[in-house]
């Protein structure tokens, strides 16, 4: 009698837990589906955070431009990596200074002739701009305000790939980093 009662209780508990599990799984699946819907409707515009350069390259299906010259004052690896625009989209690398001071941002497309994904370019106010040259390629050097903070911004193309490099540091350092980006001729 006791064994039958215990077996009945076991069946009831099992039924209760299994029901809870499938209701929970169904709810979680519905939530995940609802979360994925905007990307399906609007296209995968991002930006999405990537944990490492390797992960960002895997998501983009392309190699990321990296500077050959990397000042000692900047910490490695990048403090934040974001990708946007799906396969062969764009990447933004944010580098922090080791002493917590001014940083550097590198935003680049991974395909030639394609604009940088707008999701990666912060709203900015251009205070002034002048044409310049980076490694023999025409470029634009601008002073911009991003959230009230002044940056020096250099934009040009590396083998047809649009690149934007921003720094709050020294202008010479910015140009030197720009010239050292892989693929730039006349380093």
């Amino acid at each position: 009698m006791g064994a039958v009662r215990a077996s009945g209780a076991g069946v009831e508990i099992a039924r209760m837990l299994v029901t809870l599990a499938y209701v929970l799984a169904g709810t979680a699946a519905a939530i995940v589906g609802l979360g994925a819907l905007p990307r399906l409707l609007a296209g995968d515009t991002g930006p999405h955070r990537a944990a490492s350069i390797q992960e960002a390259e895997r998501r983009l299906g392309a190699r990321i431009l990296l500077p050959g010259y990397y000042p000692e004052r900047l910490a490695w690896p990048p403090a934040a990596i974001h990708v946007a625009g799906g396969r062969h989209g764009s990447v933004r690398l944010a580098f922090a200074a080791r002493d917590g001071g001014t940083g550097l941002e590198l935003v680049a497309a991974t395909d030639a002739g394609v604009d940088i994904a707008p999701a990666l370019l912060s709203d900015r106010t251009v205070l002034g701009a002048r044409p310049t040259v980076v490694g023999g390629h025409p470029a634009t050097l601008a002073s911009v305000l991003v959230e009230g903070v002044a940056w020096q911004e250099l934009s040009w193309s590396v083998n047809g790939r649009a690149v934007v490099l921003r720094s709050q540091g020294d202008l010479d350092e910015l140009v030197r980093i720009a010239r050292s980006l892989h693929g730039v001729s006349g380093r």
Binding site: I31, L34, G35, L41, A42, T45, R49, A51
Partner: peptide, 26 residues
């Protein structure tokens, strides 16, 4: 924080901002 939203969240309501209707995010 963004890291949680990107890496751990099952659903991020803000992601509906990317779908726009009459110029305003859903």
């Amino acid at each position: 924080e963004e890291g949680f939203r990107e890496d751990l969240a099952l659903f991020d309501a803000r992601s509906w901002e990317t779908v726009r209707l009459l110029g305003v995010g859903l």
